Computed example of a mutant assay.
Amino acid sequence: MQTAHRELATQASKTVNISLTLRNWLIGCYIIEYELNGKDRAEYGEKLFTQLAKALKRLDVARSKERELRRYRQFYRAYPQIREMSPRL
């Protein structure tokens, strides 16, 4: 029983990590592709992060402060090929 519990807990943890990684990438994608239209517009970007952080907080989205949103944007820029790895994205 203990072995089964450990294995299933490990699998669940991996699934959550994968899901959160994809969620963060998608938030970065949204910021770059839909809000900034692929451009780095400094003035608009500052307001965008503030407004988006507030909107995500209202939706009770965890880890959605401005600092994390900037990291998600960097993550998307660093790994744009993730889109090609999944037919559903």
Results as ranks from 00 to 15, higher is better:
M1W: 09
H5E: 11
H5I: 14
R6S: 09
L8T: 06
T10N: 14
Q11R: 13
A12F: 12
S13V: 04
S19G: 05
L20G: 04
L20R: 11
T21A: 15
T21M: 15
T21D: 15
R23P: 05
L26I: 08
L26H: 05
L26S: 04
I27E: 02
I27A: 00
I27S: 00
G28L: 01
C29E: 13
C29Q: 12
C29V: 06
I31A: 00
I32C: 12
E33S: 07
Y34T: 06
Y34E: 10
E35V: 00
N37Y: 07
G38Q: 01
G38L: 01
K39D: 07
K39P: 04
D40A: 12
D40N: 14
E43Q: 06
E43V: 03
E43A: 02
Y44A: 04
K47R: 15
K47E: 12
L48K: 05
T50R: 06
T50S: 13
Q51V: 02
Q51I: 02
A53S: 15
K54W: 11
A55D: 03
L56G: 03
R58S: 02
R58T: 04
R58G: 00
R58P: 02
L59S: 07
D60R: 13
D60W: 07
V61A: 04
V61M: 04
V61N: 01
A62M: 02
R63E: 13
K65S: 11
E66K: 12
E66D: 06
R67N: 12
E68S: 05
E68K: 07
L69N: 00
R70H: 12
R70T: 05
R71D: 10
R71M: 10
Y72V: 00
F75L: 05
F75M: 04
F75A: 08
R77M: 12
R77P: 00
A78T: 15
A78Y: 09
Y79R: 08
Y79T: 06
Q81N: 13
I82C: 01
I82S: 01
E84Y: 09
S86L: 15
S86D: 11
P87W: 06
P87N: 07
L89F: 10
L89S: 05
